[in-house]
């Protein structure tokens, strides 16, 4: 039986804010590039929640806003509006000093182009030690070797990028991103330039880092090899999250993937274009609340049903 005091407590207790406990939180994130006479809206109200230690993939067509999102999350770009928080740090209100600290100790970043991740004239070990030196830490040669070992490229330590294969370069790049023990690593199509075997190795390295170091990993990718192996895949369309695919392993060992549409906080939903095309849904649909689901009917068809 609920007492009055229970009710009172229930009333005064604040409901948990949206994604309060999430490790990465984007709420209604907007990024507009202003150019002469034209505004390019790269992100238009994107919502995203990622828990600590999660390994997720972000997929989407070219120009959907994936890279902008990653740039925002890495602190390389500043959103125009909305809320973006990573490991408790508000990305919109950071000062230059905060931003530097954020980049030094909170996030690590991996670009698609293997050449862009590493300085060509430094050895793998020196490349890994560089972020530590930049952060003013004592350059940990041991830690560099340890990381390279963890990612399976220990033998590359004294080599320069030019003397390594693409896969090795990307794995060294992951080691560089992990050098300052970040909480989050962000990878922009890390396997984009690699063949499938090498991609497997690189993705394996990322997953190992995620599992063994407990780092939250966000991977933007086109590569089905990657997107089909993560627990969760977030799809982005027109600057918004549109779908999520969750994967779980069934009792008999098969991977079951279920695709969900994303329902945002105000109840908006993006219907997959295939679905709407198939039923020729345009402009208006009719919704009906049933006991355990909501039915969506094309406007015309619903009217017929009603007859």
């Amino acid at each position: 039986m609920t007492t009055l005091s229970d009710l009172e407590a229930q009333a005064t207790r604040r409901a948990p804010a949206f994604g309060e406990h999430a490790h990465i939180l984007c709420d209604n994130l907007v990024r507009i590039y202003k150019t002469e006479g034209v505004e390019v809206v790269a992100l238009q109200g994107l919502d995203l929640l990622i828990e600590k230690g999660e390994l997720i993939a972000i997929v989407g067509a070219s120009g959907s806003g994936k890279s902008t999102l990653l740039n925002v999350l890495s602190g390389l770009d500043v959103p125009t509006a909305g809320l973006a928080r990573v490991a408790g740090m508000d990305l919109l209100s950071m000062t230059a000093k905060d931003r530097l600290r954020y980049r030094r100790s909170v996030v690590g970043f991996i670009w698609q182009q293997t050449a862009r991740n590493l300085l060509p004239y430094l050895t793998a070990r020196e490349n890994v030690m560089l972020p530590m030196k930049l952060a003013g830490k004592k350059a940990g040669r041991d830690r560099a070797d340890e990381l390279l070992d963890l990612l399976g490229v220990a033998d590359c330590a004294p080599r320069r990028p030019g003397q390594m294969s693409g896969g090795e370069q990307q794995r060294v790049a992951i080691a560089v991103a992990l050098a300052n023990s970040p909480e989050v690593i962000l990878a922009d199509e890390p396997t984009g330039e690699l063949d499938s075997d090498t991609s497997e190795e690189v993705f394996g390295a990322l997953r190992r880092a995620n599992r063994e170091l407990g780092v939250t990993a966000v991977i933007v990718t086109h590569d089905p090899l990657v997107s089909e192996q993560v627990d969760r895949t977030v799809g982005i369309r027109d600057g918004r999250t549109s779908s999520e695919t969750l994967r779980r392993t069934s009792e008999d060992g098969d991977v079951i993937a279920e695709e969900y549409a994303v329902l945002d906080r105000v109840g908006r939903l993006q219907l997959p274009r295939d679905f709407t095309n198939a039923l020729a849904m345009e402009r208006r649909v009719r919704l009906e609340l049933e006991r355990d689901h909501i039915g969506v009917w094309p406007a015309g068809a619903g009217e017929e049903n009603g007859d």
Partner: peptide
């Protein structure tokens, strides 16, 4: 600044 407010691939800024 981390990234400029404009993108270099569009028309030049006034």
């Amino acid at each position: 600044r981390p990234l400029k407010d404009t993108r270099a691939d569009v028309v030049s800024a006034r």
